[in-house]
Amino acid sequence: MIEQRLSQDRGYADHGWLQAYHTFSFARYWDPEQIGFSDLLVINDDQIAPGRGFGTHPHKNMEIFTYILDGALEHKDSMGNGSVIKVGDIQLMSAGSGITHSEFNPLDTQSTHSLQIWIMPNEENSEPTYQQQFISQDEKKGKLKLIISPDGADNSLHIRQDIRIYSGLFNDKEQAIFTIPENRYVYLHVAKGSLTVNNLVFQAGDGARIRDEQQLTFSYGQEAEILLFDMRPVETNYPKI
């Protein structure tokens, strides 16, 4: 079953310098029917104004994944890491026992479009870690590239949870098939463009909870960029965040 949710049905917050769409309940957006899916808790689709961003703030016991779609983010944290995350970069921060960090758009005239994704870890109060890696377009073009996994397979970033995250780019005649492992849930997020998945048309910002399906066929892409989450088959009811 593919439970499609359209972009316009997401939560929305206008903070002036930040325009944010929330796939799942977050901050002031609260919908008891949209409280994460399996261990996936947050997908925030953010547009950050030039020179603005998130000041230093804490996190604890959360796997935090940042994916840049346009622009850049300058990152600094209490572990001593400092970097500029650009298009093609993926960043994974395991907050563990506790960290603080800040994120700012360092560009003078261009907004930054990013996804920030939170995943519940499978252990608490572990040592915080930071990982960042560049993934070229060729590695994602017309295919699903494993970018995050619990075992670091295929040079992916290592996450403290039983989840595998794939990224793909699809345009024109490019096509791919994803065979869903037995007894797994999948979440699909379309970050850009449009494409067809199992005869359903998805536009930018659309998503889908996927249960009891054997495979997904991705086709008819129009500058589409997607993230696919392969997860434990659990129904969770996390507290409001």
Rank of each mutant, 00 (worst) to 15 (best):
K145D: 10
I147F: 03
T112K: 04
E139D: 15
Q137P: 07
P239E: 06
Q131D: 00
F24Q: 07
Q161Y: 10
S25E: 01
N155P: 02
G88F: 13
E223T: 12
F134S: 10
I68F: 07
L73H: 01
D212P: 01
A176W: 02
A153F: 04
Y67N: 11
K240M: 15
N171H: 10
D14M: 03
Q215S: 06
R10T: 05
K173Q: 14
Y220C: 15
P128H: 07
E127P: 11
Q133C: 02
M62Q: 05
H101Q: 11
G221F: 12
H189M: 12
L40H: 10
Y67V: 08
S149K: 13
Y130G: 08
P50E: 14
N61H: 05
F54Q: 01
Q132H: 13
S38E: 06
R5H: 12
N237Y: 11
H158W: 11
N125C: 04
N199R: 13
S78K: 06
I177K: 15
F26R: 03
F54A: 00
F134C: 15
I43M: 04
I147N: 02
G207S: 13
N198H: 07
Q137V: 15
D138A: 12
F178G: 03
I68W: 04
G221T: 11
G205W: 00
A95V: 05
S7C: 10
A20N: 12
V190M: 06
T109K: 14
V201E: 14
L6H: 14
Y166P: 02
D45C: 03
Y130V: 09
G36L: 01
E74L: 13
Y220H: 13
G207L: 06
G88H: 15
A13H: 11
G98W: 11
Q4N: 10
D46F: 00
S194L: 04
G96D: 06
D154K: 15
I64G: 05
Q131R: 11
D230R: 08
S111D: 09
K145H: 07
N198F: 02
L92Q: 13
H189Y: 14
T100E: 11
H158F: 12
A208N: 13
N155M: 08
Q175D: 03
Q116L: 05
G221L: 11
G16I: 06
A20L: 04
H75I: 06
Q203R: 13
F229W: 02
V197A: 04
K86V: 15
L157T: 10
G221M: 08
N81Q: 13
D77I: 02
L144P: 09
L41R: 15
D89S: 08
W118F: 02
I165W: 05
P181Q: 01
H22R: 05
H189E: 08
N122P: 05
T179Y: 04
N171C: 00
K140T: 06
D138T: 13
R28H: 14
S111P: 09
T100I: 09
S136Y: 07
F37P: 00
R184A: 02
F65M: 03
S25H: 04
G11C: 05
S126Y: 13
I159L: 04
E174D: 12
F26T: 02
T100N: 14
